[in-house]
Amino acid sequence: MNVNIRNYYAKDAQDIAEINFLFNLAYQYNGDYKPENIFCAEIDNRVVATGYLEPTESCEYLDKEGKDSNYVHRFILETDSHGYEQLEQEIFERILDRATQIKKSYPHKKIQISHACEHTDLESIDFLFSKGFYHSLNYFIMKRDLTLPMPEYSLNHEIEIKRWAMGTEAEKELYLQAEEDSSGESWSKARLNWFMAGSEWDTITAFHHGKPISSCMTWGISSDRSATEQIFTHPDWRRKGVARATIIETMRFLRDEKQKNEATLGVVGSNQAAIRLYKSLGYELIDIHLLMVKDIV
């Protein structure tokens, strides 16, 4: 058996689609996925396992200033195959080596790689422990039954909440700037374009005098369920009911326009304010994921 582990080529698309359809789409159409950060295990000219490093929004600051020396630039690590676990582990090691190469280019910046595990996946968690990973935080996965009654809200009449298609590059830049102003960092343009091209993508945004002040993004997960994610509100508009109203309008949109029965979201377990808001809107905890991270030195 002739095994070759190498970087990704465009000709690998069909083989990778048979392993993981979403991996294949991301490799081809998401500009954040760079061939030098994607690895493939090939047996007799056929790719049977693959894995990658994906930059998060924190990596936008690798090549620019604006964050202090303790700021962490985090990449996501994923692998998959059809039963070739040993080759997945070899790809895993190649990805660790690649992360070390990236760190050498940014010696004065903190770099981590991460992988999220379901809390019941003890085998994967234990494997990551053996590779120097540690538990960083919990993600609470929450679900809202959209067939139940929706809460009401009232807002300043100068605030307009509407579906925002972001049809121009200027509007995309406006959205990303609003996210950065609200959260301290934002998605890359490539990541935004990737999600906008996805199944049943929409964004519901609150505007004040034409400026976006709060937003909730949604995309299809199944015939019955959609995500309610990328929720942010400008600091000047927090604790004024704007985020609550934006999420309610998103849930109504999913129920009435998309005929969905469920909405789900993920929230960092320590974000008590957000969890209180989501609970008040009828979201219930359905799962917990553990974020495992490794510091690259």
Rank of each mutant, 00 (worst) to 15 (best):
M142Y: 00
M142L: 04
K143R: 15
R144D: 00
D145V: 10
T147R: 11
T147H: 05
L148N: 13
L148D: 07
L148P: 14
P149M: 01
P149R: 00
M150D: 09
P151C: 14
E152F: 07
S154H: 12
L155M: 12
N156C: 08
H157C: 09
E158S: 12
I159R: 00
I159M: 03
K162G: 07
R163L: 13
R163S: 05
W164L: 00
G167E: 05
T168C: 06
E169L: 06
E169R: 06
E169G: 01
E169P: 06
E169K: 10
A170F: 13
A170C: 10
A170N: 04
E171M: 05
E173P: 11
E173D: 13
L174E: 13
Q177P: 10
A178M: 01
D181E: 11
D181G: 06
S183V: 14
S183Y: 15
G184S: 08
E185S: 15
E185A: 09
S186K: 03
W187D: 07
S188D: 10
K189Y: 04
K189G: 05
R191A: 15
N193S: 13
N193D: 15
W194V: 06
F195R: 04
M196A: 07
G198V: 08
G198W: 04
E200V: 11
E200I: 03
D202C: 04
T205H: 01
T205W: 04
A206V: 12
F207W: 00
F207K: 01
H208I: 07
G210M: 12
G210K: 06
K211W: 00
K211P: 06
I213N: 04
I213R: 05
S214T: 04
S215K: 07
M217S: 06
T218V: 07
G220I: 11
I221L: 15
S222H: 09
R225Q: 15
A227N: 04
A227R: 04
A227G: 05
T228E: 06
E229F: 08
Q230E: 14
Q230V: 14
I231V: 09
F232C: 02
T233F: 10
T233W: 11
T233A: 13
T233D: 10
H234T: 11
P235V: 01
D236Y: 03
D236R: 02
D236V: 02
W237F: 15
W237A: 12
W237D: 08
W237P: 11
K240D: 13
V242A: 14
V242I: 15
A243G: 12
A245Y: 03
T246Q: 02
T246V: 03
I247C: 02
E249C: 03
T250H: 12
M251C: 08
R252C: 04
R252K: 12
R252E: 10
D256W: 03
E257W: 06
Q259L: 15
Q259W: 09
Q259R: 15
Q259T: 14
K260D: 04
K260F: 00
K260Q: 03
N261F: 12
E262T: 11
E262W: 10
A263F: 10
T264P: 15
T264R: 15
T264G: 14
T264W: 14
G266M: 09
G266S: 09
V267E: 00
V268N: 09
G269M: 01
S270L: 07
N271G: 00
N271I: 03
Q272D: 05
Q272T: 13
A273F: 01
A274I: 05
R276K: 10
L277V: 11
Y278G: 08
K279P: 03
S280V: 13
